[in-house]
Amino acid sequence: MKKSFVRLLISLFIVVFAAAAMAANQAVGQKNKQFTVSSMKIKVGETVDFRNDDPFFHNVFSLSLASTFDLGSYPAGESKSVTFDKPGTVEVMCAIHPTMFMTIEVVE
């Protein structure tokens, strides 16, 4: 009885851990006035965390049809997230620094 309970607990832990791992957000840094990746592919419903690793403000935004958002200005060390609900190509930029540009391909 005791062994079965332990097995059940382990199984539950594995399932929960796997689900958490699968749901982990994608991450994009902002460093030296560049995004740390220039392009990425994600699935509809996935979330991307945009972390500011520069010692000054960034303002991530997109005016793409597939996803329009403005994360506002945020300082070093902060991160803001976007969940992408529609398929399509999303061009992501920093409003303050025009050298920062990346694309996210959102697929079904």
């Binding site: 303002n59 935004f61 005016l63 403005d70 506002g72 200005s73 409003a95």
Partner: peptide
């Protein structure tokens, strides 16, 4: 006027 984002 060219990029309509609040901070600009």
């Amino acid at each position: 006027a060219h990029i309509p984002v609040k901070v600009l």
